[in-house]
Design a protein around this nucleic acid. Structure first.
Lengths: 137, 137
DNA sequence: TATTGTTATACTCTATAACTATA
DNA sequence: TATAGTTATAGAGTATAACAATA
């Protein structure tokens, strides 16, 4: 029944959101800032790209980065090739917390999936990725 | 790989959140109020129970219900058997918007799953429900 | 002209702490 | 004492609109 899948998806989104709340709380971080940090683990990201990834307006992102910056977790670096652009980048302290947060989130989610077999987990991930891919913005 | 499933879950949660934003926006409603309305479709719910379902503090819920009430979408009704308690209930206008919102959310999610076969959707829902169930608060 | 990013503003969401009223 | 709910307060998140600077 389609209704069941929709319900399952909504419930699961709730759980995932809660996982970010819990992970952030370990470092006194609001969930949005925790997610921001996780987005920067692989390296600096431009503001426009970051806003797209987080699905927030660029103006909202400015404030989010400001607050994380005030905590000493991120910095802004200018783009060499484009005078308008800048990138958000983790500070050493931000890097430490970002990695710990990402590990905590992944750990909690994997723990929830621990009851499933490896094959089930693979199928689940594959199905979810197909749905996410279908979400053409 | 576990990491892949965690990533898929996080991405999917993002998509679901966005679906609520889009559904709420159709009625000029913030996503939290849209979700509140959906929670009340099956009938009045006590404040404490509602706070648990939405995973917010009771004080946060008071404000949320107040704002929805100001818009004429919900009301508070006293509990006959417990003088302390009250329940949040949809107004006729709230009911209308709640049903439309729920339909929109379900519709958007089902559309994302349209590429999957019925069997895949069933397996996906089953897997998700098992994960949600594993999330013992 | 279009794009990048910020600021100003208003509203919303959230938790903590302190409180009232009922059980 | 414990529970249901609210209020006060402070901080955070968000979008819209207007703006500056660069492409």
């Amino acid at each position: 029944m389609e209704a069941d899948l929709a319900t399952a998806l909504v419930r699961l989104a709730h759980v995932v959101d809660h996982v970010f709340v819990a992970a952030g709380r370990a470092h006194d971080l609001p969930p949005q800032q925790a997610q921001l940090l996780c987005m920067l683990i692989d390296g600096p990201v431009g503001m426009a790209e970051l806003a797209r990834l987080l699905r927030v307006e660029r103006s909202s992102l400015s404030g989010l980065v400001d607050r994380a910056r005030r905590r000493g977790l991120v910095d802004r670096v200018r783009d060499d090739t484009d005078g308008r652009a800048c990138h958000a980048v983790l500070t050493p302290e931000g890097e430490r917390i970002a990695v710990a947060t990402h590990r905590a989130v992944t750990g909690m989610l994997d723990e929830l999936a621990a009851e499933l077999t490896a094959a089930e987990r693979s199928r689940l991930a594959a199905g979810l990725f197909r749905m996410v891919a279908a979400h053409a913005d």
